[in-house]
Design a protein around this nucleic acid. Structure first.
Lengths: 124, 124
DNA sequence: ACTCCAGCTTACCCAAAGGTCGGTACCTTA
DNA sequence: TAAGGTACCGACCTTTGGGTAAGCTGGAGT
């Protein structure tokens, strides 16, 4: 299989099926993954902050998403053993690299959403 | 802290729930949506081309995804009434704007996937 | 004493995303 | 006559993402 670190490696197949790239892409573009990454692009946040900022996320999904992103080395977890438990989540170096590319995309999406979605039949 | 040029619309809530921006974000970051957009970023493609390039997609999902992206004004469909039916799909102006931002993200993902996913326990 | 908060985890369950398969219409090649 | 290709549609069924609810630890508030 292709492992060549070419600039435009998807010149031949756009992310071969079953490849690690597909998995990572799924993590990043997952429903809540994007929102968490965007929230953290502004700086460190606590559990309850994230719940508020990623409006609508459930505790289960928050925990699950954070765990995935942490495993992928995009988010780091800093648990302080203080009396009322305090845990801060922030982006790793790698995470910042990613969100540097993600934020413009999100900004474009945000700016164009009204025109696109409201100007068009939206049944699904 | 601030990473975007604009007043950062998600400064207060990162894509408010139930907003058009969430819907559009879901379309764009959907499992097959990304792959179709990336494939089309290289130029026009036919139905069967897309099936090959978005490896693993089913006909149903291809049709559904294309329809969504078309409704969002990101993809244009050009059906020629020739004897063996020929339909070309390509990006609209708006679609190009998007993929200009999407491609770097995809490239980063592709380049970092091996290290991230293979260097780490991957249970899910 | 009782309840509330943060920061989780686990169990249970459902809607919906997505896969499989068959059909359609028209033409070409064997 | 039969098989095969393009570009789909749609019924049916399975997988899974994600929601709800409950529990847990250990203070702090009333």
């Amino acid at each position: 299989m292709k492992t060549a670190p070419q600039p435009l490696a998807f010149a031949d197949g756009v992310f071969p099926a079953g490849c690690p790239s597909r998995t990572l892409l799924d993590h990043i573009t997952s429903k809540w993954g994007v929102l968490i990454l965007l929230a953290l692009s502004e700086g460190k946040h606590r559990w309850s902050d994230l719940r508020r900022r990623a409006e609508g996320i459930s505790e289960k999904m928050l925990a699950q998403t954070l765990k995935t992103l942490e495993r992928d080395g995009l988010v780091s977890r800093d648990a302080q053993p203080v009396i009322p438990p305090r845990v801060d989540y922030s982006l790793t170096e790698r995470g910042y690299e990613l969100t540097a590319l993600l934020v413009p995309l999100a900004a474009w999406t945000f700016e164009n959403a009204e025109v696109i979605i409201n100007g068009i039949q939206q049944d699904k």
